[in-house]
Design a binder for these strands. Structure first.
Length: 483
RNA sequence: GGCGACGUACCCAAGUGGUAAGGGAGAGGUCUGCAAAACCUUUAUUCAGCGGUUCGAAUCCGCUCGUCGCCUCCA
């Protein structure tokens, strides 16, 4: 397995710190607002990475934090007129709900900053003792220039940063590059007791404190959105390595952005869509499929057209899946082999290797999906050759196992085709229910029996106008939602 | 200004040294009462442009053009 490491800028062979085990920490969200699709991308990407490690037999410990105390939360509380911890709880719940719908499993550990004050304070104390931190009027700052290697993750030179001159001006700092480890709280703001007076942690320190508590001072994978590379992750490295005197993280993994009209989706530009808004129009599995159909480090252009394409692709999967379950329900006993089964068997045997080859190459889900669709074509080709009997049933079961197995890694394909079409009935706002469709099909069946093709076609067209597509089979007529 | 990405068919998108995956759309065909679905054939001698390295480059190097990101909270 090879993973692209932001630290080295290269794909590197993955070698865990401890054989058979993987420790991964991913920066979660600051819970002060609804999540948008960009948050979903990060969550889904790392969910798949974690599932794939597991699929490969690793014992994974996945930690993803919630930043539940921060200036943005305090501001939001003022706006909404509710206590800050109420804001944090509300949006933490929303996050969990959104992610649950998108098929993102909870992390093994989901630490909160507010529940790790002791660890945070202890860490700052060590930094102070070692001369990496200094206190000024109740604030504590990290002495950036003292840490040798600052900038190694984001490839920045300290003097270039200075030249950028966009570093905030703060008289209390000895150096503009220094960043806050601890911030004194003003009257009325949430505060925790500390050796420097009442205050709250700076943003970066919580991740350093919580990751080392739950995964150790060194661990395998640290992830997050590409925008966290600087300064957040750079600062984490400085704090953690200064504290512990050893390498913090082995592989830094960053996901790319979602763009709208080629521009990064962001709060400040106002060009973002919340997960909730999107799920009103599209099925969560469609969203998930869409996000996994591009490599995790590339930008993804977000649009309804793109989501629709993802829906069509997923429909192709479910159409085949539907065919497979139909065969299990009706196949005849009479044994009939076909020449196509040889290619089919070869495709089945080779599938796992090809899937792994894609995923082993820096979690290339886009390529993996390509492998899945090649397999689907082969399945259909085999079925088109009209085999029957027990060997057909065995092959159908094998194909289903393969597709469902790979679906579990990607967090896709978990439903029955019937459920898929029922859900589409709603999301596509089809003005008919299942009973109405079935009675129309029945009516058409009569017309067809009488060879009244005009009437049969009229009924079919009416259904099509409503968004329902009919498929005549030798023994029955099936319906599906047109995508 | 500094640093870093990216530019593959009509659209989306894999491919980081060995001769262009996959999905959609288009065209033709098989099947069908007709359709739909599925399958088959077809659609990039070519990977922004120009040079260079190499037996060989979309893949490595340089330059040019274009787009974007980070440098400030950000997934």
């Amino acid at each position: 397995m090879r993973i692209y490491n932001t630290l080295t800028g290269k794909k590197e062979p993955f070698e865990p710190l401890e054989p058979g085990k993987v420790g991964m920490y991913v920066c979660g969200v600051t819970v002060y607002d609804h999540c948008h699709i960009g948050h979903a991308r990060s969550a889904i990407v790392f969910d798949v990475i974690r599932k794939y490690f597991r699929y490969c037999g690793y014992d994974v410990t996945y930690v993803r934090n919630f930043t539940d105390i921060d200036d943005k939360i305090i501001n939001r509380a003022k706006q909404e007129g509710i206590p800050w911890n109420e804001v944090a709880r509300k949006y933490t719940d929303e996050f969990r709900k959104d992610m649950g719908l998108l098929g993102v499993e909870p992390a093994d550990v989901e630490p909160l900053a507010t529940e790790h004050m002791q660890e945070i304070i202890d860490m700052i104390k060590v930094l102070e003792e070692k001369g990496y931190a200094y206190a000024v009027n109740g604030d504590v700052y990290f002495l950036t220039r003292k840490f040798d290697g600052y900038g190694k993750l984001s490839k920045r030179d300290l003097d270039d940063l200075m030249a950028g001159a966009r570093v905030e001006v703060n008289e209390a700092k000895r150096d503009p590059l220094d960043f806050a480890l601890w911030k004194a709280s003003k009257e009325g703001e949430p505060a925790w007791e500390s050796p420097w007076g009442p205050g709250r942690p700076g943003w970066h320190i919580e991740c350093s404190a919580m990751s080392s508590k739950h995964l150790g001072q060194s661990f395998d994978i640290h992830g997050g959105g590409a925008d966290l590379t600087f300064p957040h992750h750079e600062n984490e490295i400085a704090q953690s390595e200064a504290t512990h005197g050893k390498r913090f993280v082995r592989y830094w993994v960053h996901n790319g952005f979602i763009t709208v009209d080629k521009e990064k989706m962001s709060k400040s530009l106002g060009n973002f869509f919340t997960i909730k808004e999107i799920l009103e129009r599209f099925d969560p599995e469609v969203v998930r499929f869409f996000l996994l159909s591009t490599h995790y480090r590339s930008p993804i252009e977000f649009s309804d057209e793109q989501l629709k394409e993802a829906e069509v692709s997923l429909d192709r999967y479910y159409t085949t899946s539907w065919r497979l379950s139909g065969i299990l329900a009706t196949a005849s006993k009479k044994e009939r082999s076909t020449p196509e089964e040889k290619v089919f068997d070869g495709m089945c045997s080779g599938f796992d290797d090809r899937f792994r080859a894609a995923m082993d190459d820096d979690f290339n889900t886009a390529q993996a999906i390509g492998v899945i669709f090649e397999f689907i074509r082969e399945v259909n080709r085999y079925l088109d050759s009209k085999p029957s009997g027990e060997s057909l049933l065995e092959r159908v079961r094998r194909a289903k196992d393969i597709l469902e197995g790979v679906g579990r890694v990607l967090g896709l394909f978990a439903r029955t085709p019937e459920d898929w079409y029922r859900v589409l009935l709603n999301s596509r706002k089809v003005p008919m229910d299942e009973a109405g469709i079935l009675s129309a099909i029945d009516e058409r069946k009569q017309a067809r029996a009488n060879k009244d093709w005009d009437r049969a076609d009229r009924i079919r067209n009416e259904l099509l106008d409503a968004g329902i597509l009919l498929e005549d089979r030798p023994d029955r007529t099936d319906w599906k939602v047109k995508v």
